[in-house]
Structures are given as structure tokens and as C-alpha cells.
Design a protein around this nucleic acid. Structure first.
Lengths: 223, 223
DNA sequence: ACAAAAGTGTTCGATATACACCCATGT
DNA sequence: ACATGGGTGTATATCGAACACTTTTGT
């Protein structure tokens, strides 16, 4: 049997969250001009998935609860001339993580909206693919809720869907649909908006028995 | 920089077609007991996609027009103890290929329904994943039509969708929907059924301007 | 009083689903 | 004549989309 060609295998993570009304991606500073997605070569004794978890943890100190394989890229780009495949995962984290865990060194790790920074190699393409997948997935699952903290007002997921889908949604229709899904329950608590103005919003949480990857029935989320 | 662990990269192809009222997969004989999916290590100068095309061509003499990346499996299974990733593609071919191109050696290459043969390693899992993806994809695209020959009767796609979705569809509703898609046109020709009985069926073809990956609007195909 | 955000129902059109009979052909 | 598969339309239910006003709070 012929000796196999050496192909480098790398896992890459596209970790996304919502902040300041935009969908942002976790990036690491690569050099003065460019940023890069977190990535690593899997160790011999760890799964691909574990390698992704590890690289996210090592670089940003974040544990990602929702993580899914996106696509495997065939990268000829590599400057070293070595053949490489990038097995890309994408993940979502609640926006609250942004505030609670101060990213230690903003100059080296940060969240950016698309096109806010120049990226290395094919990383822009990867981010773009992840965003497309996420938008698509919103249409037939309730993944968007992964981006929420434990307790949230109904305005939060609505805003989030608006950001990801890139268009405004009707409040009444949105609430109707969320209600029909039957995945949320009121906590009884309320929260006043940060600026103090306006009526306080009821806080909701997931029903304990409901977890990830809820498939919506009929047609899906406000498309 | 530490030397990377050696991980073998292999592309694997799940080529499917409809025959005898069942969704079948192209398999190669591995030994007396087991069959395997076509697969190969990519050469240094070819893309992953080209490697898949090549392995299908070499093993079965088939050109696959619809081919898409399915998933990358992290296989610990490997008996040799070498770490390996399998980048799996799935493809669809028109059922007519079955008849027109006699597979040269039935004992070595053949089409099988799921569970019809024992497979090596994790190949059963791979086939299962491909079937799930295909069913899912049918619900929001018109990929099923990839499985059809150039000219076909409306009963053919209906039967095909029934086989893949695993349930019966209403003839009138199905035709209504196909019509609404506006992707087919009547050729004016007819075909009498093979056993000679029954009214001849009109033959249809794709409108020349319509090609692959038609997204269906509203909700999709008879789910 | 007013500014700001939360909350709440109804109507209309489109699509999905269920359902039964006649037509053209070969034997 | 009959068996076999092809071809056609209507009625109902559900879902998505559009749309405006009242409520609660802080200033």
C-alpha cells in the first residue's frame, strides 16, 4: 500500500454571540493587520470536538454549550505549501458571557462583527459560511435561544432574531409564535430597562424539560 | 512549533439512487462478510471533491452530478491504531444509470438498501446519516429530482419521494405542488408502462433554465 | 404630562391536507 | 369487459403577515 500523503488536520471554531445589536464572532489577534479564528491541531488522544472545546477554552476561557460541525474546508491557501483541511465547528454563546467574563486582554481576544477586521487566509469565508448556516438554521429550529442568558425578556430573543435575520419582526407575531412553541415559562420576575424608562418586562426562562435543538413544527420562525 | 500528530485523511462517498422502490447505496465488497463505501486518500494535487469524484469513477465508473459534503467523522474505529478523519460526501444519481451502465462485476460492486449487507467499521452509521440528511433536505429543496433521468413521468418523482420519506403521498397534491414549482415542462411525448397495461403517461423534463438545488418557496415538499 | 418600552387580537391570504371519480390503453 | 395505471378539482384547516392601541413605569 502506498504511503499516504501528509495532510495537516486542523479544527477551527466560529464562536458567535449577539452584542450591541450585531452578530459578532470571537477572534484572536494574528498580527498588526489581521485577526484569526481560534484553531488547533487535534491531539492524538482527543476527539475533534474536544479539540475545538479546548482551543476555545485556552484562547478565550469560554465554555460553549451549543457547538456543531459546520463544514470541512479544503485549504490550498496555506502559505507553508502544506496541504491542510480545516474541520470547522460553529458555536453560540449567551450574550451575558460578554459582560460577566471580561476578556482578559482586549488587544488579543475580542468579538467583532463581520467585516470589522481583516482576517487571515480563508477565515472570512469561513465566518460567512457560519453566518449563512446560522440564518438557515434559525428557520427550522430554535437555535437562536442558545444565545440567551438563563432569564430573559421576550424582547431579547426578538431582537436577536432580527439581528441574525437582518430584518424587523412584528412583536405580536413573534410572541404568538414563541408562545405556540411552548418552550418558555414566565418566572414571575420583572426587569426594568437599563435606562429606567418604560414598563418593566416579564422575565422568562426555558421550561426545565426543554433543551437544545428544538425543532419547530409547521413552518418555522418568522422568516 | 511542535510537530503535528499524524492524522490520516480519507474521503468517503455515499452515492445513492432509487431502484426497485428502495433507496440504495453504492457499496464495494470488502471481504466475504462485509461491504464498504468507496473511499480514498486525497492526492496531494487534487481537491477533496476531486478525490471523491475519482474514487466513485474508479470503483463504479459513474459520474455523479449532484454531490455535497455530508459530515466529517472522527473515527477512532481504525484497527491499525492510526488516527483518521473521514470527510464524507453524499451524492445522488438518476436511477437510469443502473440499467444503462451494467456494473461490470456484481460480486464486487453493487447497490444495496440499508441493512441489506453488513458494512465495515462505521460505514453503517455514515449511510444512516446520509439518509437522514437526504430526507431532511427533501423538505426544503427539490434535490429529489436529481435522482431522475432526463425525461420522466410524474409518477416517478412521486414514487421517489415516497420511498425517501417513507410514506405515501397524495397524487393530486403532489402534482399540484410540482406544478406550482414551475420547474418542469411536458415534452409532448408519452410512455406506456412496462407491462403494457394502463393509460400512457406524459413525459416531463426540467425547463432548460432550471437547474440544481431549487429552493422551494413557502413550505416545501409533501412532508 | 410625557417619554419609553411592554403587552395584547383580529383579519386576510396562502399553503397543506383530505378526499373520489373518469380516462386511455392492452389483454 | 376488465384490469391497470394516468389524470383531474374542491373544501377545510392551519399558518404566516399585516396592522394600532393600551398599560406601566420613570422623569
Amino acid at each position: 500500500m502506498a504511503k499516504r500523503q501528509q495532510i495537516n488536520v486542523e479544527v477551527v471554531a466560529v464562536v458567535m454571540t449577539i452584542s450591541e445589536g450585531a452578530l459578532k464572532t470571537l477572534l484572536l489577534r494574528h498580527n498588526d493587520q489581521r485577526w484569526a479564528l481560534p484553531g488547533t491541531a487535534p491531539r492524538h488522544d482527543e476527539s475533534l470536538r474536544s479539540a475545538v472545546d479546548r482551543t476555545i477554552r485556552e484562547h478565550a476561557g469560554i465554555e460553549v454549550e451549543y457547538l456543531e460541525q459546520l463544514y470541512t474546508f479544503d485549504s490550498q491557501h496555506n502559505s507553508g505549501g502544506n496541504r491542510e483541511v480545516q474541520i470547522v465547528y460553529y458555536g453560540l454563546v449567551p450574550s451575558v458571557l460578554l459582560r460577566s467574563k471580561e476578556l482578559e486582554d482586549r488587544a488579543k481576544v475580542n468579538w467583532f462583527a463581520e467585516h470589522e477586521q481583516k482576517l487571515v487566509d480563508n477565515h472570512s469565508e469561513i465566518v460567512h459560511t457560519a453566518r449563512l448556516r446560522l440564518s438557515g438554521k434559525l428557520s427550522y429550529t430554535a437555535v437562536g435561544f442558545e444565545l440567551l442568558p438563563d432569564k430573559f425578556t421576550l424582547a431579547e430573543p426578538q431582537n436577536l432574531y432580527e439581528v441574525i435575520l437582518g430584518k424587523e419582526l412584528d412583536k405580536r407575531n413573534f410572541r404568538k409564535k414563541v408562545n405556540a412553541l411552548g418552550i418558555l415559562e414566565a418566572t414571575g420576575e420583572e426587569r426594568i430597562s437599563r435606562i429606567g424608562r418604560g414598563r418593566p418586562a416579564s422575565l422568562y426562562r426555558f421550561k426545565p424539560e426543554v433543551f437544545h435543538n428544538i425543532e419547530t413544527k409547521g413552518d418555522i420562525f418568522p422568516v
